[in-house]
Simulated assay, not measured.
Amino acid sequence: MQTVSVAQAKAQLSALLDAVQAGEKIIITRRGQAVARLRTEQPAKPDFSVFRQFRGTWKDGMRIDRDALHERG
């Protein structure tokens, strides 16, 4: 894990992003205190629960309301 100051991070942002993309974790410090961590973004897992709600209920000509698809409950 690499530690850099805010000033270094601003000056070397592209290189730091390349390092993060290669799998390295980077801590950014301000006045010696850790304030941020750079790491790769984990891809979001799709939420299929709304489709499970309608599984087996589909009938010819049936339509699912867009608002029902985005409803969280």
Rank of each mutant, 00 (worst) to 15 (best):
F54S: 01
I26H: 02
Q2G: 07
E24L: 09
R39H: 13
T29D: 02
T29W: 03
G23C: 12
K59G: 04
L69S: 01
T29S: 06
I28N: 03
K25C: 00
K10V: 12
D47N: 08
D65K: 11
Q33E: 12
S14L: 14
L17K: 00
G23M: 14
L17F: 05
E24G: 05
T29G: 03
A68R: 13
H70I: 13
D18S: 13
R37D: 08
P46H: 05
A15N: 12
T3R: 14
V35N: 03
D67A: 14
D18E: 12
G23Q: 13
V4S: 09
R52F: 13
R63S: 06
A9T: 12
I26C: 00
G32K: 03
A68W: 11
H70T: 14
R66C: 06
T57I: 05
R55Y: 15
A9I: 09
A15G: 13
I28V: 15
G61I: 04
R72V: 04
A68C: 09
A15C: 09
L17E: 01
G32E: 01
L17I: 10
I27C: 07
R52P: 02
L69N: 02
S5F: 12
D65W: 08
A11P: 06
A68Q: 14
S14Q: 13
H70S: 13
Q53Y: 10
T3F: 11
Q21Y: 05
R55L: 13
S5T: 15
P43M: 08
L13S: 12
L38Q: 05
I64Y: 02
I26P: 04
V20H: 03
V20Q: 02
V4N: 11
D67M: 10
I26Q: 00
K25I: 02
I27F: 07
R55G: 11
R52E: 09
L38Y: 10
L17A: 01
A36I: 09
L69C: 00
D18N: 10
S14C: 09
F54H: 02
K10L: 11
L38D: 03
L38S: 04
M1Y: 08
I27S: 07
Q12P: 10
V35D: 03
F48K: 01
S5E: 09
L38G: 04
S49R: 07
A22L: 11
K45C: 09
D60I: 14
F48M: 02
F48H: 01
L13P: 09
V6E: 06
D65T: 11
L13C: 12
P46Q: 06
A68K: 15
R72L: 10
A22E: 04
S49G: 02
M1G: 07
Q21D: 06
R72C: 04
L16I: 06
F54D: 01
I27H: 07
F48A: 01
G23R: 13
E71D: 14
A15P: 10
V20M: 03
A22F: 08
R55V: 12
L13M: 15
P46V: 10
I64S: 00
E71M: 14
V6R: 07
Q2K: 15
I28Y: 09
R72F: 07
L69E: 01
F51P: 00
A9N: 10
